[in-house]
């Protein structure tokens, strides 16, 4: 089991980001990843991303411009279910690309 850190960003930093984080935890477990998720608001996302070492940042709100230091993936598919498998595949791909 590989440990990965994910920053999940949504408008209030609570509800949607928690929904997305839980789905990711569940699906990535099947892929051999243990996910540690942190939820954030867009306004605090950049400073949190720069302060912590996240493997990937997922978001359902637009993110302010900036150097996040990790791959950023749109997580809206988690809410609709459409393209959801592709979303997990994209997350796994960036984790693998980073050697995880």
């Amino acid at each position: 089991m590989k440990n990965v850190k994910i920053l999940s960003v949504c408008g209030s930093g609570t509800v949607t980001s928690t929904m997305v984080a839980e789905k990711l935890k569940e699906h990535l477990l099947d892929e051999g990843y243990k996910v540690e998720a942190t939820e954030a608001r867009p306004t605090e996302a950049l400073s949190m991303a720069q302060a912590g070492s996240y493997d990937v940042i997922v978001h359902t709100s637009p993110l302010p411009e900036g150097e996040y230091g990790a791959p950023i993936i749109d997580a809206f598919a988690c809410m609709t279910g459409i393209g959801e498998d592709q979303f997990y595949a994209d997350v796994v791909a960036v984790l693998q690309a980073a050697g995880k």
Binding site: V15, T18, E22
Partner: peptide
Amino acid sequence: VMAVQNPNEHIGSLQRVI
């Protein structure tokens, strides 16, 4: 319309809303 206090305590409900 959701009234949520601590989302981590209601993960089951949030997942079922989805």
